[in-house]
């Protein structure tokens, strides 16, 4: 089980959180003019990185606030926690454990 540092409540067990998938995916600004391929990319395609991944979590059984973390998807080490809307921290995303 992950120990997730909620930026508002501190470290809590993974079972208190819900997962929001990859962070920093922007909805196309003008859906009417977005091609089917770009729309499919927005809806379905994920980076699915083996390495450092930027993802959204929500403290569902706590403060109920969303935030972003950078986590290594092999070691599961949580490397950074930052607010929704903030730019992702700099990491070599394909680094080994």
């Amino acid at each position: 089980m992950l120990l997730i540092p909620c930026p508002y409540c501190g470290e809590r067990a993974e079972s208190e959180f819900s997962y929001g998938g990859e962070a920093h995916i922007a909805r196309p600004a003008d859906p009417e003019k977005t091609s089917d391929a770009d729309w499919a990319d927005y809806l379905y395609t994920r980076t699915n990185t083996k390495g450092v991944y930027f993802e959204r979590w929500m403290h569902a059984h706590g403060c109920r606030r969303w935030f972003n973390i950078a986590r290594h998807t092999v070691s599961y080490d949580i490397l950074a926690v930052y607010e929704t809307g903030a730019p992702p921290p700099k990491f070599d995303t394909k680094s080994e454990v």
Partner: peptide, 13 residues
């Protein structure tokens, strides 16, 4: 597990 992971193990809960 709900999250992206390449570690070949599962969460306890």
């Amino acid at each position: 597990d709900r999250y992206v992971g390449y570690g070949q193990r599962g969460s306890m809960q």
